[in-house]
Computed example of a mutant assay.
Amino acid sequence: MLEDIKFSVSMCVYGGDNAQWFKTAVESVLNQTLVPNEIVLVVDGPVPDDLNAVILKLEENDTFKVIRLKKNHGHGIARKTGLDNCSNELVAIMDADDISARNRFARQIEAFRNYPDSDIVGGMITEFIDTPENVVGKRIVPLEDSAIKEYMQCRCPMNLVTVMFKRSSIEKVGGFIDWYCEEDYYLWLRMALANMKFRNVDNVLVNVRVGKEMYQRRGGVKYFKSEVKLQKYMLDNKIIGYSRYLLNVTERLILQVLMPNKMRSFIFQKLARSK
């Protein structure tokens, strides 16, 4: 029975998150067809009163384990803190402003039951602006391990906000390590180098809240430099060759530095959200 398998959900929230969006995200976790027996919430630094009120209410629920960090450390450290405090072997990631499909966790637990050698299971996402019904894009990723690892050579092959993984597998490769906007991609690369098994289910697991701010974060010189550093890591570890390295860097230079934000939004929504 799927209900016999215990798993944790790891969430992070910080002062810039919207209190109502966070509440909606939490409700999408609590109203699953298969519910977690533990939700670890890392509060990454001080938060405003309206957001703190939601967190204080959650602390009354025995399912929640709330860890408060005195200052904001960023996603990498916050996610590592969350993972360190999870009690179960299977851990799902959830963001503070997205909405999980009601059968998300059931689909993932079923995948682990059917493919027990998997170290991580993710899935597809849709992206919406303002209201969940206003879907503006869909990010499709490969399903099988070999295809995921091939896709990894050019783009991030897992949608972080959808993943559920074996805690022991993540810890074997060092867990989440801070890397500007790329701590997830960096983790998948280290897992691939350790010959771990990837899988994505062919279902939309999370509806992701997006907007112009997200596309701005996906551009700029700082983001580009972080991407180039990651591409160099892939080159040095023979995940890609030099020609693929040059192609990847050139594409990112155009998309992240030379392209205006409005055009970048169009590319991400219409062209960059498919296999």
Rank of each mutant, 00 (worst) to 15 (best):
F22G: 00
T24Y: 07
A25L: 07
V26G: 06
V26N: 06
E27H: 07
S28K: 08
V29N: 10
V29L: 08
L30W: 00
N31I: 05
Q32A: 06
T33S: 13
T33M: 05
L34S: 05
V35T: 15
P36N: 08
P36F: 11
N37W: 00
N37P: 03
E38G: 03
E38R: 08
I39W: 04
V40I: 09
V40N: 01
L41S: 00
V42A: 00
V43M: 08
G45V: 00
P46G: 02
P46H: 04
D49Q: 11
L51T: 10
N52A: 11
N52M: 12
A53T: 14
V54I: 15
I55Y: 01
I55F: 02
L58D: 02
E60R: 04
F64P: 00
V66Q: 00
V66H: 03
V66E: 01
V66M: 02
I67N: 00
I67F: 00
R68M: 06
L69K: 11
L69R: 13
K70M: 04
K71A: 09
N72R: 14
N72T: 10
H73A: 13
H73W: 10
G74P: 02
G74D: 04
G74H: 02
H75R: 10
I77D: 09
A78G: 07
A78D: 03
K80D: 10
G82S: 02
L83A: 06
L83G: 02
L90G: 00
V91A: 04
A92G: 08
D97P: 04
D97F: 11
I99E: 08
N103W: 05
R104H: 12
R104G: 04
A106T: 06
A106D: 10
Q108A: 02
Q108L: 12
Q108C: 07
E110L: 13
E110W: 07
A111W: 05
R113T: 14
N114Y: 08
Y115E: 14
P116G: 12
D117R: 14
D119E: 07
I120K: 03
I120W: 03
M124L: 12
M124C: 04
M124Y: 14
M124P: 01
I125A: 06
E127K: 13
E127H: 09
D130G: 01
D130I: 10
P132L: 05
E133K: 11
V135Y: 04
V136Q: 01
G137H: 04
K138P: 00
K138I: 10
K138V: 11
R139Y: 14
R139L: 12
I140S: 12
P142T: 02
L143A: 09
D145T: 02
S146H: 13
A147H: 12
